[in-house]
Amino acid sequence: MKYSATLRVNGFSYPVTIEPQRTLLSVLRDDLELTGSKEGCDDSECGACMVLLDGEPVNSCSYLALQTLGREITTVEGLSTNGDLSPLQKAFLEAGGVQCGFCTPGMLISATALLARNPRPDDEEIKASLSGNLCRCTGYTPILAAVRSAVEMTAG
């Protein structure tokens, strides 16, 4: 049995007709063609699929799409405004926090949620908030620098 439902993603409403076993990640990528969220491990260990669900990070590869009905989803595509990157996204580019780019959407989602609840995190808090996101380009140092730089830009 398929279910017709409306998902709220990045402020837009998307009607979908899906099987209940479908994960949020597969619906975002294959039905809505929002391919910013990545399938890395598909075991909810790497964080490449991370999105915000009502503002909190969730691994979309293990969350059922139908369970998001009535809730607001934010993907990496929703972090920019009218094509302008967020201060955090700009900081990732400037600090070299993007190498192959596969972990970047999840890193940005985790860091966006961190800065929303704590605009002035210290290094330990930044590291803890990103610890569910794996980078296989050994790029953690510039990623940490990028978040620190965004903190300095936005918190003054």
Binding site: M1, Y3, S4, A5, E19, P20, Q67
Partner: peptide, 23 residues
């Protein structure tokens, strides 16, 4: 399916037989 449906607005609308979901 009707026995499982709670009639809530956040339920998906079923369209064919097979797997089921209720919230």
């Amino acid at each position: 399916m009707s026995a499982l449906a709670s009639g809530s607005t956040a339920m998906g609308q079923a369209t064919a037989a097979g797997p089921s979901y209720t919230a």
